[in-house]
Amino acid sequence: MALIETHNLSKQYRTADKAPTLAGTIRHFLRRRYRTVEAVKDVSFSIERGEMVGFLGPNGAGKTTCLKMLTGLICPTSGTASVAGHTPFRREHPFLRQITLVMGQKQQLIWDLPPADSFRINAAVYELSDDVLKTRVGELAEMLSLSTQLSQPVRKLSLGERMKAELLAALLHRPDVLFLDEPTLGLDVNAQAAVREFLRDYNRRFGATVLLTSHYMADITALCQRILLIHKGQVIYDGALDRIVQRFAPYREVKIELANVEGQADFTRYGEVLAQDGRVVTLMIQRRNLTETVATLMRELELADLTITDPPVEQIIGRIFTKGNAA
């Protein structure tokens, strides 16, 4: 049985619109107009124990709303969700002991006290003994390369240190299911890499199941073999990361280097021009025309070099979201 399972999960909410004028303000006060927003529509998927799945989508696609429903923070409008055999919204204690939610832009640590004080509270809440607390803090701090920072007030920590301490607090009770919403948001490249490495290590050591959202494609490619693409509240792709190229990119990138700059041709007749920099031109060519177009290029132009590659995953996903339809 899958550890996380959703069937036609949907969430609608009402929001009030207000025009930015004085008349709009008065109208908003006297007769508020509401509209219903469909944040998530009929989302169905299942995740097996130990999987690391990337949840991808543009801003407002419904990723965070899904995570909130799966952790039991908000009540679905319709559909069902099951996590570790529990209905999340009931928020039963055995369920809460098995999960954690880390939000990159939110913190649970007490701002004016050292992280160690927040850990003590979490230990009490999750009923961990002093010995277990000490062992786990030591173990996780070592994995995260944290030590002296744990006795400094949270407000004095750098963003990267704070995020690591947040992760430590969130994982102290050793949850089986990790919901991570933008865990590397705003971190520098080194800190991002450290958090990624830690998550991979945690998954390997404890067999944890991870559902991760991130705007950084590097997080997804480094950690997840499987991705869920969500757009306008609907899942438009659920499968292996490497298969997305075959499915959604019926084109390849052809980079040509001209032997000389003189007499440059109109490259648009070969395919879509992605970039042109001096003698180097990058074209996007449909797979079905690839052989014929490459032959034409070699026949008509004097080339110093030619390379054919698959477009980067970020670009493919970007195009899917721009077009708004992956079907």
């Binding site: 909130k68 952790t71 923070l73 939610l101």
Partner: peptide, 11 residues
């Protein structure tokens, strides 16, 4: 939204 982390605790 600060209530959220508190709602996720078994307390």
């Amino acid at each position: 939204g600060q209530l959220s982390p508190r709602l996720l605790h078994p307390l």
